[in-house]
Design a protein around this nucleic acid. Structure first.
Lengths: 339, 339
DNA sequence: CTGAAAGCGCTTACAG
DNA sequence: CTGAAAGCGCTTACAG
């Protein structure tokens, strides 16, 4: 393949000048630059990334770590981040943990990222004390998205999960519901992934505020998936005194709830109201009320923040405050049947 | 950071031996290997990827190109491929085209992939004649997934889209439908991305086989999204003589159709039947009949095939034949109202 | 089984 | 503004 000295020879300059010209450094005369660009074009030259990286000390790559690409929130974050990174000519190295704790361990504690990327975006990745130490030891810019654990020096992009849950619960309360169930994450399973903890907290706060003591029987754990929400709802329906409303911690769970209710022949919101969090692509299609968050905004903001950090610019101000959420009332919530 | 000569010094061997020992080459004595491993561990040494790549000539990375990560099929393919690649210790470079034709052009014609990856997986990426030439010029192993255009020497992982569409259409015909609409891709928009062309073909074949001449008015173009399916369905409902059944080219479009029908106050399948293709994660939850394909199988198989090619092994036999599809009848299809 | 040395293809001070 | 030379940190023939 053609190398930098081929271009240098054709353009009649040194390789150093070719390198400078091609990277757009200011210290090259306009005529020289044109000659070099022309030569490079004629030869179809592209610099070898490995060589540039070794010599230059930067990789031009950013690692994006997600728990599960097939969940709406994560795919959307990655897609938005990818667009921003592509524009800045960074490569996106994808690490999908896929629920494999071992993959998480290997990634964090094996220096796998070490000389491989310039920065890291950790999306909803559980971090224990030793993980935080490992990640800090990377000594590179990073951001967390939707993460419960703060990493010193890393901006944290997120919504206010407690507030979002309060909004959802308050909506149900305002409609007149008293027996409100909650479907959320499994504490044992999800470790420091705190989203579900905060959403549960908001749910309880909103209930207590209006004098309702949260009923542990109505607070069920499930995976953050359609199937998880469906199973949890089936369990709720077996109670002697089932709820009149369900607040699911994400839209995928809420859609699972809708499926179970439909199969059980119950009408929504006639018999039971359902609300989620996210505003999933399909939430509108199934008429699901929800507390919307923008996964795309979070992905974009996380990428932009990282890019600024890589240029030693001050982090985006917006990365300091939680992103907004918004109640969207569709057909899945309504007043309970007159008691 | 610690380099290979630090390890060599501590272990009392040459850097060549460290390199061999750490990569598990067979030409190292067991005792030496132990000494080297021990030294590397003590120093927390990991080889610099850039240096290894430059010296070794392989990047250990694979490019995965998808049109849109946020569509179920593509996210699922990538997730499955990622798992296989991670296991083989390959990095996954994600290229999400996001509908940006310019991104596709840049990727294919700019030698961007050139010395950056060892192999390429092209998922549903439109390829014109000059694109095929560019991709072949890469001179590296590759596979296509769900692609209409064959690249010489590259295995093509796919289902039989014509047959899948026939299955869906025949199901509706068997239920007694005659006015069957089809919602599929936009020819102008999607170029050589042939999935929708094949599915339209299967739809027409199945109709003609039972003596029904496809009605162009019932064959509407839309984007492969929920919103696209919803809008297309709204258009169908405006016809003087609307269809009694809709075959949507993918489940996301079908779910959009369901949404529009629900909003229009029509019952499914009482007034109109709907069937899609995919078996999307949520198809079960919304009771959508569909022709299932396994995106995960395709992603896994594509990755495995690539890995074998990189080892100069014969490609997996399964990569030679279309993967199976399967009709799944749920609640969204039924006989038309007695005329 | 192991080592000395060349080489992978760039970028970066350092001079000029 | 430009070039000669060193160096980035590995791997790979080639010897032995």
């Amino acid at each position: 393949m053609t190398r930098i000295d081929d271009v240098a020879r054709l353009a009649g300059v040194s390789t150093a000048t070719v390198s400078r010209a091609l990277r757009g450094l200011p210290t090259v005369s306009e005529t020289t630059r044109m000659r070099v660009l022309d030569a490079a074009n004629r030869l179809g030259y592209t610099a070898s990334p490995s060589a540039s990286r070794l010599a230059g000390g930067r990789t031009g790559s950013i690692a994006v770590v997600v728990p599960r690409l097939t969940r709406w929130f994560f795919a959307t974050v990655v897609e938005a981040a990818d667009e921003a990174l592509q524009r800045a000519a960074y490569d996106l190295l994808l690490y999908n943990l896929g629920g494999r704790e071992q993959a998480r361990q290997r990634l964090l504690h094996t220096a796998a990222l070490h000389k491989r990327v310039d920065a890291v975006m950790l999306v909803a990745t559980p971090l224990h004390a030793d993980d935080v130490a490992a990640v800090t030891g990377l000594a590179m810019p990073g951001v967390t998205v939707s993460s419960g654990t703060a990493v010193p020096g890393w901006p944290s992009i997120r919504i206010d999960d407690v507030a979002a849950a309060r909004t959802a619960t308050e909506h149900l309360v305002a409609l007149g519901h008293r027996r409100i169930a909650h479907i959320s994450g499994d504490d044992a399973d999800e470790l420091a992934f705190s989203t579900h903890i905060d959403r549960r907290l908001g749910y309880r706060e909103a209930l207590r505020e209006v004098g309702i003591e949260p009923d542990p029987d109505l607070d069920v754990e499930a995976q953050f998936t359609v199937a998880g929400g469906a199973r949890a709802t089936a369990r709720l329906l077996q109670r002697d005194d089932p709820p009149t409303a369900i607040f699911a911690a994400c839209d995928e769970m809420a859609m699972g709830a809708l499926a179970t209710l439909r199969e059980a022949g119950l009408s929504v919101p006639g018999d039971i109201s359902v609300i989620g969090v996210d505003d999933h692509d399909l939430a509108g299609a199934v008429g699901l009320s929800t507390v919307a968050q923008s996964a795309a905004d979070q992905g974009r903001l996380a990428a932009d923040t990282l890019l600024r950090m890589l240029c030693d610019e001050a982090p985006d101000e917006r990365s300091q405050v939680p992103l907004p959420t918004r109640l969207i009332v569709r057909g899945s919530t309504g007043p309970p049947r007159a008691a």
